[in-house]
């Protein structure tokens, strides 16, 4: 049998002439991330990365960003973003109390509680 094949597979995406190209995207983010970038992002995400990890992440994240950058080959002007796979609107719930107390069961999983409160290091206001 003969399966007709396309002119390229996914590893050749740059060669797709059917893709409309855009040459002048105004904001082209910097592809490569350095250690300081990683540390900044890690702080936002509340992750601790030591120097070694930051370097390693900088390298692998830069490679992933390179992959992601391929998206910019497509001109998406006028395309409606798709945040959900279904088009349906939000379903609404009637305003009724349906929950019963399960505090004790929930707090069995808690690292630290006292007088029914979850304990954390002091929050400074």
């Amino acid at each position: 049998m003969n399966v007709s094949t396309g002119k390229g597979g996914f590893n050749q995406i740059h060669e797709y002439d059917s893709l409309p190209h855009s040459s002048n995207r105004s904001t082209k983010p910097e592809m490569a991330l350095n250690r300081a970038d990683v540390e900044k992002i890690a702080h936002l995400a509340r992750l601790q990365v030591d120097e070694q990890e930051a370097k390693a992440f900088a390298a692998s994240l830069s490679r992933i960003l390179e992959l992601i950058e391929q998206m910019n080959a497509v001109d998406t002007t006028g395309v409606t973003p798709m945040a959900h796979p279904q088009e349906a609107g939000l379903r609404l719930r009637e305003d009724r109390v349906t929950e019963v107390n399960a505090r004790e069961k929930f707090q069995r999983n808690a690292p630290a509680t006292e007088r029914d409160l979850y304990l954390v290091p002091k929050v400074i206001e």
Binding site: L44, L61, I68, T76, P81, M82
Partner: peptide, 25 residues
């Protein structure tokens, strides 16, 4: 880290929004 970066100020349009549009395509 990748996700935090893609949503962060200054990169949202180029990454997250562009991805949502591609998703539509």
């Amino acid at each position: 880290l990748i996700g935090t970066y893609a949503l962060s100020a200054g990169y949202y349009d180029a990454y997250y929004l562009q991805a949502l549009k591609l998703r539509r395509l």
